[in-house]
């Protein structure tokens, strides 16, 4: 007989010591970042390790209260989406997942409530995912190249087809 999966035994990810999250939490976060950047026009979020960037920033650059909201929202996201939208986020396809995120972000409720935590989690994830993506090597070399050494400034450049 196979032992049942016991998540209470799952160890805490040491890299994010302020967050107290597990590998399954991180997998769920990756589903959210992959929903934000599904890789249909540009590269997929996980190809750029966007989930790791979201966690680094949440661990290092948020206040304790912001971290608490983010983590509660993350840990409750699957249950929340199941009770609110009738399906756990992990089981949704891309279209359903996008709708769930957009609805979650727009829901009204106190900051210190389940809805509030969910909103904080989704907003924080979106904000850091976007920041990480726009400042990724891929985006800044292949999509909108960044110039370290521009060596010029023109104050009145004519725009073609303006």
């Amino acid at each position: 007989m196979m032992p049942a999966c016991d998540f209470s035994e799952e160890s805490i990810l040491q890299a994010y010591q302020n967050l107290n999250i597990t590998q399954s939490n991180k997998v769920l976060l990756s589903r959210v970042t992959n929903t934000i950047f599904p890789g249909t026009t540009l590269k997929k979020a996980e190809d750029l390790m966007i989930q790791d960037f979201v966690l680094v920033m949440s661990n290092d650059c948020l206040s304790t209260e912001q971290q608490a909201g983010f983590v509660k929202g993350l840990k409750g996201w699957d249950d929340f989406s199941k009770t609110t939208f009738g399906k756990a986020f992990s089981k949704m396809d891309q279209k359903e997942a996008e709708e769930a995120i957009l609805k979650g972000v727009a829901m009204e409720g106190e900051n210190e409530s389940e809805i509030g935590h969910t909103r904080q989690f989704l907003n924080t994830t979106k904000r850091f995912a976007l920041q990480g993506y726009l400042n990724s090597e891929y985006f800044m070399t292949e999509i909108k190249p960044y110039e370290l050494v521009p060596a010029r400034f023109y104050g009145s450049k004519l725009i073609e087809n303006a």
Partner: peptide, 14 residues
């Protein structure tokens, strides 16, 4: 426009 998510966001960023 960075307000959306999914392919809409990727297209806008590109």
């Amino acid at each position: 426009d960075h307000s959306g998510i999914g392919d809409e966001l990727e297209q806008s960023m590109a």
